[in-house]
Design a protein around this nucleic acid. Structure first.
Lengths: 153, 153
DNA sequence: CAAATTTCCAGAACAATATTCTATTATTGG
DNA sequence: CCAATAATAGAATATTGTTCTGGAAATTTG
């Protein structure tokens, strides 16, 4: 799974993570190469799946998403059918920005972005009506101290 | 803070979130407009800070980041100086992809991406040597069920 | 309600950039 | 050290981003 990348690939990835809107010439200049190799490498990194997507990151609060919750979930259900239904429910809900299955005491953690506490409650009610969940703890974010998608390549 | 956006702005943002590599003509076609208004609106959305950045999302595992932890932190320290040092430490560490200050029992939650458990321990030791922390719980992700930066605009 | 003003849009004109191609240089394996 | 392969810089072409212009729609003002 781990792709073999050389120093030039990593420099290119660092530049793209920093600003994917730069021209090839700009990137080539910064990484000490020229257009063609940069372009070929980006194409290969895409094909290899190292670059998953190119996107814009929006300001959640500017769009009215003023509340962010981390949701810790315990469940007594562990059959395949239950898990499938639970995963489908999470993937179908756009409020759920992240979902991880955990090791240990707590089974799942979610990151949920919504307009306000009322919207979170609506989400919560809808979720527990769809799938059986044993125990839920919601942690309310007061302040986003840091948020980055950049990986230190 | 909340910017006033019309239906066209929202369609454009949806397209950019889906794929920021599309040409203006493609986007204009999909949202039912033409190049110029699409271009002008994107520029304004950038200036207004609604669009924060344009970037690429990489495959963490392909790059050797095989472990992801959610870290729950309690502290007895709540003075401004301590908080400032703590925030600076988090922002300086590239392993920390998210950090939120919470309401309630637990004071902070972090999302930390590292190569493996050993790398997490190195991070943990470094952090607690820099700033005083009362209690730390690490939740290990076994599986990333969902991960998206898309906001439902 | 009407006229004036402003804002926004479609399409053309232009500038910049992405993509392809070619000759050359570096790298690898025997 | 030489042949074979892969990668590179730079030129040529195609596509796209950006600016400009005239006109339509919406908004404001009297």
């Amino acid at each position: 799974m781990a792709a073999r990348l050389d120093a030039l690939d990593r420099k290119i990835l660092a530049e793209l993570q920093e600003d994917a809107g730069q021209s090839l010439d700009e990137i080539a200049g910064k990484v000490g190469s020229s257009k063609t190799p940069v372009w070929n490498r980006i194409r290969k990194l895409r094909e290899a799946g190292v670059i998953r997507r190119q996107t814009v990151l929006l300001d959640a609060e500017a769009l009215g998403f003023d509340a962010c919750f981390f949701v810790l979930i315990r469940t007594s259900e562990h059959e395949a059918a239950w898990q499938k239904a639970f995963l489908a429910a999470l993937r179908a809900r756009p409020e759920v920005q992240e979902a991880h299955r955990l090791a240990g005491d707590i089974d799942y953690i979610l990151k949920v972005r919504v307009a306000n506490a009322r919207a979170y409650d609506a989400f919560y009610q809808a979720l527990i009506s769809e799938v059986k969940i044993h125990n839920v703890t919601a942690l309310l974010s007061m302040e986003e101290i840091k948020s980055t998608t950049v990986l230190p390549v």
